[in-house]
């Protein structure tokens, strides 16, 4: 037990320094970050316009979701989407094919801590930049929110849960590069499943019953739809806590997968190009 405890002792300091570094780096690229965020807004705005039009044509609601609720959903979507941007398998291809992982491997810290801390630091920049965008979207689309303090508290946890789950899953997917050197095709498959079953393309309430059941047991929902619905949906207290429990479960599964795949994958690393 002593070794794991010793390993954890230095982590808060490492996370603090790495997050601070990420903030410094990303502020240097504030214009690029803003341009990226503005570009990203196009996706939810398109979904929002389509569903608002459908809702209006059906008398103001689709499956009970009103135009204002769609607006709330997709505005929160923009924050959740920014929160669940993590180190992607494309990045892994660079790390492995060009030997960039070497520098991380000779440090006495598991590389996942660096990624988790770095992207977590980036989030603070993102949230700051997101605020005016959210204000503008709110003025334009007039969302309907009915938020309790409990929901705000759960949301603040859930967006970080979403971040952790997606970080772990994409790390596992990225590590496939240890075997294949190209993982983009797998990532595309993951992306398609995520698009349909996470609540990214449409609120999960609009899925057919069987698809919604499948979505409930897969991790995607807990990286997108669940955190959005915490604040923009109508979840009961029980559903709020079941969602958090599912996030804890998927973080644990993700961490286990990372540990196992890393253990075998890193043996295959050939540190080329460096």
């Amino acid at each position: 037990m002593r070794e794991p405890r010793r390993r954890l002792q230095g982590l808060p300091g490492l996370y603090a320094v790495t997050m601070r570094t990420a903030v410094q780096v990303q502020f240097q690229y504030r214009t690029a970050n803003y341009a990226y965020m503005l570009g990203m807004i196009a996706e939810p705005v398109i979904y929002l316009v389509v569903w608002s039009t459908v809702a209006r044509s059906q008398g103001g609601a689709v499956e009970g979701i009103t135009v204002g609720e769609f607006a709330a959903y997709y505005i929160v979507w923009t924050l959740v989407r920014n929160m669940n941007i993590v180190f992607t398998p494309y990045g892994w291809e660079g790390r492995i094919r060009q030997g960039e992982l070497s520098g991380m491997l000779v440090r006495p810290v598991h590389p996942i801590h660096y990624d988790l801390a770095y992207f977590a630091g980036w989030k603070f920049v993102v949230i700051l930049l997101w605020l005016p965008i959210a204000a503008a979207l709110t003025l334009i689309f007039r969302p309907t929110f009915d938020i309790s303090l409990l929901e705000i508290g759960v949301f603040l946890i859930a967006i970080w849960g979403a971040y952790l789950i997606r970080s772990m899953l994409l790390w596992v997917l990225g590590m496939v590069t240890f075997w294949t050197t190209r993982v983009s095709a797998l990532y595309d498959m993951y992306f398609t499943a995520e698009l349909l079953l996470s609540g990214r393309l449409l609120p999960l309430a609009l899925l057919p019953g069987w698809a919604a059941t499948v979505a409930d047991v897969l991790p995607f929902k807990y990286t997108f739809g669940y955190p959005i619905e915490v604040i923009a949906g109508d979840l009961s207290t029980r559903e709020l806590f079941i969602g958090l429990a599912m996030q804890v479960l998927w973080v644990a599964v993700g961490a286990l997968l990372v540990a196992v795949v890393w253990r075998f994958g890193v043996r295959r690393y050939s540190a080329v190009g460096n």
């Binding site: 230095g10 300091g13 320094v17 780096v25 240097q28 070497s102 006495p108 460096n274």
Partner: peptide, 28 residues
């Protein structure tokens, strides 16, 4: 330590002093 090439330890976008700070945390 392993020094291999010249892009292992330092963050590209920030002064080396900040990367040193990161190594302080990594190596405690």
């Amino acid at each position: 330590t392993l020094v291999m090439g010249n892009r292992n330890q330092l963050q590209w976008d920030i002064p080396a002093l900040d990367s040193f700070e990161m190594n302080r945390a990594i190596y405690r």
